[in-house]
C-alpha cells in the first residue's frame, strides 16, 4: 500500500530534504502514480533549468572587500 504523497513532498525529495524512510515512501508512490512521477520529473527539469543561472560578483567587489578587511585589521591593531 502506498501512502498519500503530496507534490510538496516531491519538492522536498528533489532538494534532498527527505529521510530514507520518507524517500522510499515517495518512490513507491511515484511508481504507483504516473502523475506524481511526471510532477517529480518536471521539478528535476526545472532545477536543471534554474542551474543555468549562476552569477559572479565583479572582481572589483571582491577586491574592495579584501581591502576593507585589511584596513579594518590594521586599524584594530
Amino acid at each position: 500500500m502506498t501512502q498519500n504523497i503530496t507534490q510538496e513532498q516531491l519538492i522536498l525529495l528533489a532538494y534532498g530534504e527527505l529521510n530514507a524512510e520518507e524517500r522510499k515512501m515517495a518512490e513507491d508512490a511515484m511508481n504507483a502514480n504516473p502523475d506524481l512521477w511526471n510532477f517529480y520529473q518536471s521539478v528535476l527539469q526545472s532545477k536543471q533549468l534554474l542551474n543555468t543561472i549562476k552569477e559572479e560578483p565583479h572582481p572589483t567587489s571582491v577586491a574592495i572587500i579584501s581591502e576593507h578587511s585589511h584596513d579594518s585589521h590594521t586599524e584594530a591593531v
Binding site: 543561472i53 549562476k54 552569477e55 559572479e56 560578483p57 565583479h58 572589483t60 567587489s61 571582491v62 574592495i64 572587500i65 576593507h68 578587511s69
Partner: peptide, 28 residues
C-alpha cells in the same frame, strides 16, 4: 560563497550594479 551570495542578491534586486553594492555591503 561569493557565487551563491551574489546570485541570490542579484535575483532578489534584479539590478547588477545594485547587487554589487549590496554584495560589498554584506561583507563589510
Amino acid at each position: 560563497h561569493k557565487s551563491r551570495i551574489f546570485t541570490s542578491i542579484y535575483l532578489l534586486v534584479n539590478d547588477r550594479y545594485l547587487a554589487e553594492d549590496i554584495f560589498q555591503e554584506t561583507f563589510i
